[in-house]
Amino acid sequence: MITTDICIIGAGPVGLFAVFEAGLLKMRCHLIDALPLVGGQLSEIYPQKPIYDIPGAPGIIAEDLIKNLLLQIEEFKPGFTLGERVEELDRQQDGSYIVKTNEATEVHCQVVVIAAGLGSFEPRKPAVERLEHFEGKGVHYMVKRPEQFRNQKIVLAGGGDSALDWTIFLADIAQRVTLVHRGETFRGAPDSAAKVFELAEAGKIDLILQSQVNSLGGNGVLKEVSVLGNDKSLTSIPTDSFIPLFGLSPKLGPISDWNLGVEKSAVVVDTVDYSTNVERIYAIGDINTYPGKLKLILCGFHEAAIMMQSAFKYVYPDQKLSFKYTTVNGVNAF
């Protein structure tokens, strides 16, 4: 069990900055994110885009903002659990919480902060017959450990960068790689696309264009995929693993089960301190809603500062909070 003062769900820009505001008040944080990397949307969707409305950082590139935030909070030594989704908030008798993830990680904390943006990023699932039946039995939506595919026959589906990149990478590891793509060309990353065509021509991979995987077969474990061509032809390919790579899309997910006030997929908060209707649970950033809400990173930063002042009383019930400027006190590392 991980023990901390504040458990922050979501490691996007607002969750990261919340660590700083907590640190100023000597409160320790642990962050959990469903993505395998920090930064949330900024890392997953638009790492190379400039952001123009961060005060004092004009036109900063999204991934640079995340790097800077990590630097800013380094001294407060936050803990991270990445690639896991929070499923349950278990309230203890003394009011504290145990936060539980889908991989059975448990974090004991005094305060829970939901900074989950638009929810957790989940893989997009293509319409393939019996897809969910074979989840964990040959169907993977992500390549976490490439080694697990060594000497396997694998089929990848998709036409984006990640489908191309993993096809190239796994060509050297798997026994046989087949890439199935709906279109006849690849738009993204021309270099990767050229490499994939090269591998196909050299006979190192099988490339099936203008086709889609339409059903899966096997008895208990995946044995074959069937591929439907745009010309209605049907081909069966023996396979050990099927890896559909169609990007990620955010879903509110379990947050809707936590008895919080939810309006249009956002958590209702009191603007006095961005608390929810449940004591010790706060919501900041894009995930919350209140009259006049603006979904801006800078508003999330403000919310984090206010919110941590309010959370102080749960972490240090016997102390009086005195407000101090960083210019006067500096930043005192843990």
């Binding site: 997009r124 699932k125 993204g188 169609f246």
Partner: peptide, 15 residues
């Protein structure tokens, strides 16, 4: 434009 086509390419149900 290329950007839009690129994004559409990542979808399972685009045509």
């Amino acid at each position: 434009n290329d950007n839009e086509l690129d994004t559409l390419d990542t979808l399972p149900d685009a045509d």
